[in-house]
Design a protein around this nucleic acid. Structure first.
Length: 290
DNA sequence: CACTTCCCCTGCAAGC
DNA sequence: TGCTTGCAGGGGAAGT
């Protein structure tokens, strides 16, 4: 599931292939929840526009167009952005698990490909694929504000302990639930919340209100460290995430606790526990985390 | 305002 | 073997 590192890895790869180019043709497949802006509007508004910047806000990607409009993209759970041209090996493995890897010569949009952008200078093209359709795509007219972006808290890479502590004081919810709240700190998802809490030595179920300033500092420092490392490793390819060239990230191999229920804690050997908080699974070491 | 619950969707795994 | 069921999860809306 794409969180800040995966979105940032995507942003960097796309940036090199997108910024400065003029959008020529826009193909949208069948309408779906994915499109917050009607596909017809999107096609009309994007065609002919040049992309001048690609930024990230939390887990959102925001492309700026030469007329001042912005293209808002969210990968949701299973969203994938591809720069076509490299062989999208993983794409085909995802399409049929266990099938032998015999990649076709060129990418063929499948039933999960929602958006294809081609450019005036020819290939590569850009594909947005999303099996579960939790991803989002919206066009923001020049000068328009967006509630989703306005609500975001400080970006996780720039967060300080004080940001967390201020929010924590008046909450009764578990600290992990608080970390997942994008309005407090933007960019953390289920994987990196668990990983950061492991490094900070704090149990995910700990009451937010009872965290000391010192603990909040430790947690946020762990968050920044884990995210930075995950970006370095190209993100986590656990379920569907792949980089825009189709290759896997590498951070999944460095996971300490996430989705390692029953496996020995890398520090002390105690089996990793799994609990459910706010409907989401949380993984931690009973002994290393207090 | 804080917090919970539900829902969107599909692929996969477990159970019968 | 083949069906059904349940689960996963980001985030927004609606309800408490």
């Amino acid at each position: 599931m794409p969180e800040l590192p995966e979105v940032e890895v995507t942003r960097r790869a796309l940036s090199a292939n997108l910024v400065g180019r003029r959008i020529d043709k826009v193909v949208t497949t069948r309408p779906s929840y994915f499109f917050l802006t009607p596909p017809a509007v999107l096609r009309r508004r994007l065609a002919g526009r040049r992309v001048t910047a690609l930024d990230r806000h939390g887990k959102y990607l925001v492309g700026t167009l030469d007329d001042g409009a912005r293209l808002l993209l969210h990968l949701g759970m299973t969203g994938q952005l591809f720069v076509a041209g490299a062989r999208n090996v993983r794409l085909y493995r995802t399409a049929k698990r266990g099938a032998p890897l015999a990649p076709p010569p060129a990418f063929q949009p499948d039933e999960h490909t929602h958006l294809i952008l081609s450019f005036s200078d020819g290939p590569p093209e850009l594909y947005f694929r999303d099996t579960r359709k939790f991803g989002k795509c919206a066009l923001l007219e020049p000068g328009a504000n967006d509630r989703r972006l306005d609500k975001l808290g400080v970006d996780a890479l720039e967060a300080e302990g004080s940001h967390l502590h201020r929010a924590a004081r008046r909450r009764r919810s578990p600290v992990k639930t608080l970390l997942l709240e994008q309005s407090v700190i933007a960019g953390i998802g289920n994987i990196y919340a668990d990983e950061a809490l492991f490094f900070a030595g704090v149990r995910p179920a700990r009451s937010s209100a009872r965290l000391s300033e010192r603990e909040c500092d430790a947690i946020v420092r762990a968050v920044r460290r884990v995210l930075a490392r995950a970006i370095e490793r190209g993100g986590s390819s656990i379920d569907d995430f792949v980089r825009p060239d189709g290759s896997d990230g590498g951070y999944q191999d460095e996971r300490r606790v996430y989705a390692r229920t029953g496996e020995p804690c890398p520090r002390c050997g105690t089996p990793i526990r799994r609990i459910v908080l706010a409907g989401r699974s949380a993984h931690y070491c009973l002994r290393c985390q207090r």
